[in-house]
Every structure is written in structure tokens, then in C-alpha cells.
Design a protein around this nucleic acid. Structure first.
Length: 321
DNA sequence: CCCATTTGACCTCA
DNA sequence: TGAGGTCAAATGGG
């Protein structure tokens, strides 16, 4: 359970949020069950109910969270600060010999602050969703009592556009595979295709077309098996270059602490082509299978994740809706 | 050669 | 003091 983002809230409010988060998780699991085990006829109604539940959780959490989407900026070295390196390449600084290694390490002292309690947004999904932004992995950490390592991503434009959005992705459940993505900060970069969430869940696309537009990237036309053990990214391969040769990219299921990290997450830069994205977005619908999914009928509240992302583009970080 | 990922080391915070 | 978050050298692919 992610609790870091409300660390400074009053205790009772914190508890309420925790409860909501738990309910949210359970609802997410229920959604999976519904998706897999209910016939087409009943599924429309059942899934609608599930979505309403999920939306209620999202809305409640959002409101309890102060309705704000704080940024992580204060915890990240700012441009111009002593710690800002302007993306000094690991290969520049020609004199970076072995002798300077120690010095560099020392220079890092105090150059970043650990994220303490900034606001965040979490998405639980059976798939790894594309949020329309380009992410670059900068770390991976084995978490205590967690079966799978946590992966850390920052916006690709952190240095060229000072975009300070970051996210963490962690597999939290085995059967069915469930991934939790936690977003911190907001995108200030303009170089993005769009901030929406595209769900690429092969097991979902038969059912969800009633309320969402789903895009399958299966390159072989085979609608990917529904085996729970299958990588949710199996159909994710055509999206971006990195995906093509690392079949288990971003698929943390096979993590084994006793072995190499070869199957660890790699890229999460799953970008749709502008055409794909635009055509989908023109419908005014958001493609989503995460717990912050929306329906076509109620855009005001259930677009939690989407609206968050949209609002992120305000230069001053003010929520604009 | 450039860029992204991997991964061990370092740093902060609870 | 340990867990979690970040950095950056090493590595590898295109």
C-alpha cells in the first residue's frame, strides 16, 4: 500500500485514505474477475458497476488529497541549483578518470532529497499502460517484503525541458498480474504525444469496447493468449523501439532475486504514433483500463487520472478545471 | 557514436 | 540504522 503521499495528513484522514486505497485495490481485483469470468451480456452491467466503484474511490481519494496534485519539484534539484548538472553526460567531462570517481561521489552528497510526502497518483492495472509520455528508467530497487522490485522512471525531458515528472512501477500481484504505477510531480514538458492512458490489455479488449477504446498492438494478429501468466506486454511490442527486442520489457514477473536482472523492466517509453493517438483521442474518449478509468457517460469525476494529466500542463501547476 | 538500461553505491529520512 | 530513492559508471544495442 502506498502511503508515502499522505504522510502529513491528519491521522483520521490518513486512515480514511488508507481505507479507500484498500477498497480501490479490491475493486481493481474485482474488475479483473468480472472481465474474465462473466459473459458478454452480464459484463456490461457488471463492469459498469465496477467502474462506478472505482470512480468513487478515485474521486474520494482525490478530494481527500486536497484536490491538488502537488509536485515533487521541491524534492528535486532545481535548475541552476548547486545540484543541477544540466544532464552532464556520463561520458562528457573528458577528465572523468578513475581518479575523479570518488570526488564525484562526494559531490553528490546532499544533492537530492528523498521524496517525503508529496502528492501522488496511483494506478493499478493488469497491464502497463501508456500515459503518453516518454519515460526513462533511472533505477530499480528491491523492496522489503515485496515480491518484485520497484522500478523508477523519470520523464525523458527532465533535462532538456526540466520536466520533473517521475513515476514508480511495481508489480504487486502475481495472479492475475497487477502492476501499480505511482506518479509524482507533473509534466512540464511540451514534447509529448498526449497525456492519456491507453490500455493494452489483450484480455480486456473483447469486453471493454462498450466504454473504452482499446488499442491492441499485437503485431502478429494473434490476440495474445489470456493466460494470466502471459506478459501483459506481450502485445506491446510495436510501440517503441526498445520493446521490440526485449520481449519482457517492463514485465517484472520473472524477477528472481537470485538471478540476474535480465528480465527486469527496461523501457517504459511506450509511445503511440501521433496518428494513432490523435485518432483515438478525437473520440473524446479516454482509453483506460486502469483503476482511474473513465466511462463515456460521466467525464467529470471519473477522469481522475486523465484530468490530472491534463491539468499538469498548466505552467504554474494550477489545476485548471 | 549516441542513447537507454543496468546495477552497485551513495544519500536521506523515519 | 535500515529501507527506500537517486545517481552515475558500465554496458549494450541501434
Amino acid at each position: 500500500m502506498d502511503s508515502s503521499w499522505h504522510g502529513n495528513l491528519p491521522a483520521n484522514r490518513k486512515k480514511a485514505i488508507d481505507e479507500l486505497v484498500r477498497g480501490q485495490e479490491i475493486a481493481a481485483q474485482l474488475k479483473l474477475v468480472v472481465n474474465r469470468s462473466i459473459g458478454v451480456d452480464e459484463s456490461v452491467f457488471a463492469k459498469d458497476l465496477v467502474k462506478k466503484i472505482m470512480n468513487s474511490f478515485n474521486s474520494s481519494l482525490y478530494m481527500l488529497n486536497g484536490g491538488e496534485f502537488d509536485e515533487v519539484a521541491s524534492q528535486i534539484p532545481q535548475v541552476g541549483s548547486p545540484c543541477w548538472d544540466g544532464r552532464k553526460s556520463s561520458k562528457d567531462s573528458g577528465e572523468s578518470g578513475k581518479g575523479t570517481a570518488e570526488l564525484k561521489v562526494k559531490d553528490r552528497r546532499g544533492c537530492y532529497k528523498r521524496r517525503k510526502s508529496s502528492h501522488s497518483r496511483t494506478d493499478d492495472s493488469t497491464t502497463l499502460t501508456d500515459d503518453g509520455h516518454a519515460w526513462r528508467k533511472y533505477g530499480q530497487k528491491v523492496i522489503l517484503n515485496a515480491k518484485y522490485p520497484r522500478n523508477y522512471f523519470r520523464c525523458t525531458h527532465k533535462y532538456d525541458q526540466q520536466c520533473q515528472a517521475i513515476k514508480q512501477v511495481q508489480r504487486i500481484q502475481d495472479e492475475p498480474p497487477l502492476f501499480r504505477t505511482t506518479y509524482y510531480g507533473h509534466h512540464t514538458c511540451k514534447n509529448l504525444l498526449k497525456a492519456s492512458q491507453f490500455v493494452l490489455d489483450p484480455s480486456d479488449h473483447r469486453h471493454d469496447r462498450d466504454s473504452s477504446i482499446l488499442i491492441s498492438f499485437n503485431s502478429n494478429g494473434d490476440h495474445a493468449s489470456n493466460k494470466p501468466s502471459d506478459s501483459p506486454l506481450a502485445s506491446f511490442q510495436t510501440v517503441k523501439k526498445e520493446c521490440c527486442h526485449k520481449e519482457d520489457s517492463m514485465n517484472m514477473p520473472s524477477y528472481d532475486p537470485t538471478t540476474q536482472y535480465n528480465n527486469q523492466a527496461s523501457s517504459s517509453d511506450y509511445l503511440l504514433s501521433p496518428d494513432d493517438y490523435l485518432s483515438a483521442f478525437d473520440h473524446g474518449d479516454v482509453i483506460s483500463g486502469v483503476n482511474s478509468s473513465c466511462t463515456t457517460s460521466s467525464h467529470s469525476l471519473d477522469m481522475d487520472g486523465i484530468m490530472m494529466e491534463s491539468a499538469d500542463f498548466d505552467d504554474d501547476g494550477v489545476f485548471g478545471f
